[in-house]
Design a protein around this nucleic acid. Structure first.
Lengths: 249, 249
DNA sequence: GCAAAGTACCTGATACTCTGAGTTTCATGA
DNA sequence: TCATGAAACTCAGAGTATCAGGTACTTTGC
């Protein structure tokens, strides 16, 4: 109970009486926020190195504290996940706003978003997995993956504009944005899996990160193109689609 | 160990000596396959009614047997998930091939795919969640969500054609398909969440399934359009994006 | 005004409960 | 010879509870 609409821990919201007269209480207020932040970032690092399946105990140990502390600051494992997700999201938001204010039109905004999202997922796949994994209970309700939702939110205004210009109402924008993020997610996961296979196969030259950055840019271009250019309404040359008519196998 | 490349259980692959001479052994071979199928479908039903979070014990009980049996036929919880996913996938494949052989061009194939996928996810969100949830361990490797992968596979040939016609090579098709499926998934999950909220809010008229079917078709149209038409490269009227300049709100 | 006593809260260690995954054993039966 | 299902088991990880410190503030008695 009481874990409903708060991600700051219960102690923080107990000022039912609006003033906190006692200095002994007040003295911790800033400390708590700071500590929570520290823990969040430390957890992020721990997961980055230790993988998304670290137990709470292991995370706590890696952070250099004990489980009781972690549970004091986060209601839940999924609370931790959410917090880390928010931290990641904050970085993404910053990176995006830095890039996208010089973007003209939806295509470039989408391209920026894709780039940022890909950068995040590829620079720290473990954190990505930790943040998107499971979380809330049912798949039928609740804040699905906060990260994806938040990322989508960044696209909503732009896509809303597009919808409006096309004569529709902006209401669909949220779904459209979720779709776009889903697209990136789906494609990126395949790409990640492929890259890991490749790396496992040819584990010769250790750090080919330079090539990776270029790869990433190229991939982002491709995805953005796919998202924005879409699929042609029908194959122009052969009307009945090359698939069913062609005598291949 | 030994759970790597097999989803049929160890008993089936134990013929290290290649022949099974004993009739008393062979007699069960067909039985086992049949039973596994039964269990898979029963589990699907159980999850459909009981939700995606049923424990193995609960699933077994709902099926009408005990955990030991379930574990005899599936290595793992994730083995069960995979099996159910394959069953769902089989249905989807059937539905899709029924619809899509009269589809001309990629747009219609995509539209068909979207319709089938949406139909599945909306007719049984619990099963959908069960099948896509977690499964394999790390987010960094392995068959992520078999369902999404398989669904994507159905799109690969069509999108490969498109790529080829555009002068690229077909290699990107897998990723593109994964992206498209991701799009549907992302959008559908938002839609589901919204629908559930609505239903919770106005739980007056019980069965508005008729309206739902129409909704679903409309949604499928919209999504397919978004996927195929994409986002315009730049807003035609105002070059610097309507967002920052327009005095709306 | 100032020490001492008391209070509010934080910390991290340890030990606990509880739940659910996966295993083993066994009596029954074809 | 093999399948079945019930029951009891192991094991790991989430989450809780307790406790002996520790530090900064408040209150009290002088």
């Amino acid at each position: 109970m009481s874990r409903v609409a708060q991600d700051v821990v219960s102690e923080v919201d107990l000022p039912a009486g609006e003033e906190r007269s006692d200095g002994r209480s007040r003295r911790w207020d800033t400390h708590r926020a700071a500590r929570r932040d520290d823990l969040t970032h430390a957890a992020r690092r721990a997961v980055h190195h230790g993988g998304p399946e670290l137990s709470m105990d292991e995370i706590a140990t890696a952070i250099g504290t004990s489980k009781s502390i972690v549970y004091r600051y986060f209601n839940d494992r999924s609370g931790l996940q959410t917090a880390v997700g928010e931290a990641v999201m904050q970085d993404m938001g910053a990176a995006l706003s830095e890039v996208s204010h010089r973007a003209h039109g939806p295509h470039e905004v989408v391209r920026a978003m894709v780039g940022v999202y890909l950068g995040m997922i590829s620079s720290s796949p473990s954190v990505y997995a930790f943040v998107t994994r499971g979380g809330e209970a049912a798949g039928t309700a609740g804040p699905l993956s906060t990260l994806a939702d938040d990322a989508a939110a960044l696209l909503v205004p732009v896509l809303g504009d597009v919808l409006e210009e096309r004569g529709g109402n902006r209401d669909g924008a949220r779904m459209w944005a979720a779709g776009v993020i889903g697209f990136v997610r789906g494609a990126a996961e395949v790409w990640l899996a492929e890259r890991i296979e490749l790396e496992a196969a040819a584990a010769d030259r250790a750090t080919d990160d330079g090539a990776d950055a270029a790869d990433l840019d190229e991939l982002a271009d491709t995805l953005a193109d796919w998202i924005c250019a879409g699929t042609p309404a029908s194959t122009p040359s052969r009307p009945t689609a090359s698939r069913s008519t062609s005598p291949t196998s």
